[in-house]
């Protein structure tokens, strides 16, 4: 079997090119990563230096919620012009509780310090990205409430809900996928149903189903 690997990053490359010479690190693989228990507690944050100068990306760790276990991640990495880098992270110990950790990614400033001048107020501006890392067990405690053609889905349990929301056709799972992903404890999403569907079918990655007919 021949594998023709056609990367959709052509579009990304085009948009990245416009930021060259702007001196900024960008995040390429999303602002949220989830690791369920039982799988590797390691991952990467992919960075790209979109400038034509070497830069230093600074990574700082902040708590998000849950039991905080120290995560291992470099505090800074250097990137040459145009370089892409996968910055690894790792939770060194197993823990069955839900955890959320936020990694802030900034580009080290190279400008001179601003001088205070009487009678003026200066605002120094910088950018950063917040990449959230989650780890924990998967639950199935979702609550559904209806409002017209929309359904409100709330993760009412203490664990993550990970799965997909499909349309409901009659009393069976439809073929149309409405949304997918991870709902953190307490997360609420509103999804609009196509008019021809009879309801929603939520199925988590363990095959547990919560379904509801449109009222």
């Amino acid at each position: 079997m021949q594998l023709a690997r056609l990367r959709g990053s052509l579009l990304g490359a085009a948009s990245l090119a416009c930021l060259c010479a702007q001196g900024q690190v960008v995040v390429r693989n999303g602002l949220s990563h989830f690791h369920t228990l039982g799988e590797s507690a390691t991952g990467v944050i992919e960075l790209y230096n979109a400038s034509d100068q070497p830069v230093t990306a600074l990574l700082s760790v902040d708590s998000l919620w849950g039991t905080q276990r120290s995560i291992q991640i470099p505090s800074e990495v250097g990137l040459d012009a145009g370089e892409r880098m996968a910055v690894p992270y790792n939770w060194p110990s197993a823990d069955s509780s839900s955890q959320g950790t936020r990694i802030y990614v900034t580009t080290a400033a190279v400008e001179d310090a601003l001088i205070e001048v009487a009678g003026t107020v200066r605002f120094k501006v910088s950018m950063r990205y917040a990449v959230d890392l989650y780890r924990g067990p998967i639950g199935d405690e979702v609550e559904l409430t209806w409002l017209g053609d929309s359904v409100h889905v709330t993760n009412a349990g203490p664990n993550f809900w990970v799965g997909t929301c499909f349309t409901l056709q009659g009393l069976e799972r439809g073929t149309q996928r409405i949304a997918s992903g991870v709902l953190r404890p307490g997360d609420r999403r509103t999804w609009v149903l196509p008019p021809e569907s009879d309801g929603v079918w939520l199925e988590n990655v363990r095959g547990q189903v919560t379904a509801s007919l449109r009222p």
């Binding site: 990245l16 602002l31 910088s126």
Partner: peptide, 29 residues
């Protein structure tokens, strides 16, 4: 057989510019 694997970057990119489109690092009042 040909498998086409589509990968789209989950891009998150932002920068501050002034009204002329140039880099902006501070505002003075």
């Amino acid at each position: 057989f040909v498998d086409a694997v589509f990968e789209v970057d989950e891009a998150a990119m932002i920068r501050a510019v002034n009204a002329q489109g140039g880099n902006l690092t501070n505002l003075t009042f």
